[in-house]
């Protein structure tokens, strides 16, 4: 086990997302230095709240093009046409990514008792989602569906927090 939550998240994030993309999308994954295109006209954003001994949130973000490919893979090759169905599928994707994440944290740090709030999914042009006063760990992952941004922030969790006696 790592020394602290921050280090744990940094070390685990890639494996966690890779296991979900591998199972659902049959897609390999690499961490990307390239972010989402600034010219992308439309984005999909999934937000899950974290509750329990710590509070925070997980944000997943993709371009509209990437989202279409992800949704089609999730829907066994068929396009997901209605916005309502798109939101339900993306919400479930968020649940699976978030579920893997907090399961790993809860099992590694006794007493955290983290829970996920139901996902919020929204889409729009030129979106910018920020959470003041929470330090985030942000990573971009390249899949063969496109690039996905993951942003995880937990209140009070900083690189220097010592949880040895938690």
């Amino acid at each position: 086990m790592r020394d602290g939550i921050y280090e744990f998240i940094e070390g685990y994030l890639s494996d966690m997302f890779a296991s979900v993309t591998g199972d659902i999308f049959n897609s390999t994954l690499t961490e990307s230095a390239i972010g989402l295109s600034e010219t992308s006209d439309r984005r999909f954003v999934i937000i899950l709240g974290l509750a329990g001994q710590y509070k925070g949130r997980i944000i997943l973000e993709t371009s509209s093009n990437t989202s279409d490919i992800l949704l089609q893979r999730m829907n066994f090759g068929e396009p997901v046409l209605t916005l309502q169905e798109q939101n339900l599928f993306l919400g479930e994707l968020g649940n699976m990514v978030g579920g893997k994440f907090i399961t790993a944290l809860n099992n590694s740090f006794r007493g955290l008792e983290l829970r996920l709030t139901p996902p919020i999914v929204f889409s729009g042009e030129n979106l910018s989602v920020i959470t003041p006063e929470i330090e985030s760990i942000v990573r971009y992952f390249s899949t063969d569906c496109g690039i996905v941004r993951i942003d995880i922030g937990i209140e009070g969790v900083k690189p220097w927090l010592n949880l040895e006696n938690f």
Binding site: E92, N95, G99, K100, I102, T103, N106, N107
Partner: peptide
């Protein structure tokens, strides 16, 4: 989607024998 020990314990206490992770 969650498979943490506490949840598994609760399900087991109700008598559930099989649990699948999403």
């Amino acid at each position: 989607a969650m498979g943490d020990m506490e949840l598994l314990k609760q399900a087991k206490e109700y008598g559930v024998r099989f649990f699948l992770n999403k």
